[in-house]
Amino acid sequence: MKRFLKITALAGAILLAAGPSGQAAGEAQHPRDGGFSFANLFGTFDRASAQRGFQVYKEVCANCHSMRLLSYRNLVELGLSEAEVRAIAATFTVTDGPNDEGAMFERPARLSDRFRSPFANDAAARTANNGALPPDLSVIVKARHDGANYLYSLLTGYGQEPPAGVTIGDGMNYNPYYPGGQIAMGQVLNDDQIEYTDGTNASADQMARDVTTFLAWASEPETEERRRMGIRVLVFLAIAGLLAYGVKRKIWAELKTKSA
């Protein structure tokens, strides 16, 4: 039985290792490792980077991509003060209503409002983007295999020559990290395109890194709490396990001495 188990366990381990990772069967190039702090098993989000990432999203990505699952109030968790977030929200106008006369009206956004979407609906988004739909970014890091590294690689993967024999369609761009190699989104991050409020040098690589951190946080805002709680739960269970095992040994020891 023991050897049997060993063989089965070995086979299982091989399968487990090969299984889920084997899903990324595609022509896309394997993403580069961005070395993100949150990728670590016990890692946390770099707040400063995530705040800069929000600035990149706001000034660049938000022109085409919605983040409809996030509210302005969520930004408080990024380390911004409530007053700051209120001020950020107030710079956006959202449609509210109907009012007492039955008409919709515009007002500055409040903390409880969702991020304003750039387009009224998918059809409008497609029309404005040459037929391509810019995906919502709320959970994008969860929705892609190896999400953070993929986004970082994708955003910094422009400007390479397509391999011989590949013709890039009209209005498309070559990016080796995108499945199929042709992506409707052009290169959007260029050096010094925006001016960071904290004075960090806004290189394209820095912006890609920051916006990826922000989007990773947005996809799984519970990550840090989850990992903290996980450590506590595992420590608790480890002690409980030792106690239970101790009790079990005691109880069974009595049985054995009596029977033998």
Binding site: L41, G230, L237
Partner: peptide
């Protein structure tokens, strides 16, 4: 529960 927790939390 430890295996379960490792999966859920990490």
């Amino acid at each position: 529960l430890m295996v379960f927790a490792a999966l859920v939390f990490f």
